[in-house]
């Protein structure tokens, strides 16, 4: 599904190198977790996959179903089936949440050659997804993410993921800022979409999220590269011992 080969990334207009020779594979149906200390480049990796313009890829490739997406604009990547759940979702004053959701869903449908959703069908889908995630209707009437709590913003990310139906979802520290109840709701949103057709790359600092979203694979990232790959037991080991061993190893 997602294949990253020998990726080198630096900040555009600066010399600061963040990812060096990073290689990673996420298979169809797989839930892969990336864990790593602050500053190891986890968020940068998620941004580069999604196409944020602040970074420059100096080498390597990112393949989605065998197609290199690095030359695509962020909206084209989304239409190709990629979704990034932001660590810090943006507040967009003046843009009503429903307007935004409709624009996003129809834009992707358009790119995929599908007809626009009718308003009743759109509202039906949003309501169903919102109910599942415990999102109150008045939140949908407010401007996107404006005045939302951290937990509400993360739930709104999962709502978008549910409605946009991506095949590959990258979740950047979706657990940060969440209380345990919100964490469970978010995890349920992810687990509901787990099937042989969808894949997830879950980026997190802590083991806690992985109690609720059971990963198939755990990767340890340090200083811009994957330094160890293992099964779920690796996350438990990190929780017990910390990242110290890997930071010196990298």
């Amino acid at each position: 599904m997602l294949e990253i080969n020998n990726l080198h990334v630096k900040i555009a207009d600066e010399d600061k190198v963040i990812l060096r020779s990073l290689t990673l594979k996420v298979a169809k149906g797989e839930v892969a977790a990336i864990m790593g200390p602050n500053g190891s480049g986890k968020s940068t990796l998620s941004y580069v996959i999604a196409g944020k313009p602040d970074y420059e890829v100096t080498d390597g490739e990112v393949l989605l179903d065998g197609v290199n997406i690095l030359g695509m604009a962020p909206d084209e990547r989304a239409a190709a089936g990629l979704f990034l759940a932001f660590q810090y979702p943006m507040e967009i004053p003046g843009v009503a949440t429903m307007t935004f959701l409709k624009a996003a869903m129809n834009a992707q449908r358009k790119q995929r050659g599908q007809a626009e959703l009718t308003t009743p069908e759109f509202i039906k889908r949003v309501n169903a997804a919102a109910d599942l995630l415990g999102i109150p209707k008045d939140m949908l009437r407010r401007p996107l993410n404006v005045g939302f709590s951290g937990g509400e913003k993360k739930r709104m990310e999962i709502l978008q993921m549910t409605l946009l139906e991506p095949k590959m979802s990258v979740m950047d520290e979706t657990d940060s800022g969440l209380d345990i109840d919100a964490l469970k709701i978010v995890a349920e949103g992810v687990n509901a979409r787990r099937d042989p057709e969808h894949a997830f790359l879950v980026i997190t600092h802590y083991q806690r999220l992985l109690d609720y979203i059971k990963p198939d694979t755990v990767h340890v990232m340090s200083r811009g590269r994957i330094v160890k790959t293992g099964g779920p037991e690796l996350a438990l080991e990190l929780e017990a011992n910390g990242y110290r061993d890997y930071q010196s190893a990298a």
Partner: peptide
């Protein structure tokens, strides 16, 4: 903000229009 909107599949021109 533009990147956020575009990451949801909204084209640059339409994202700018919304903003």
């Amino acid at each position: 903000l533009l990147f956020y909107l575009m990451s949801r599949g909204i084209s640059k021109a339409e994202a700018e229009s919304l903003m």
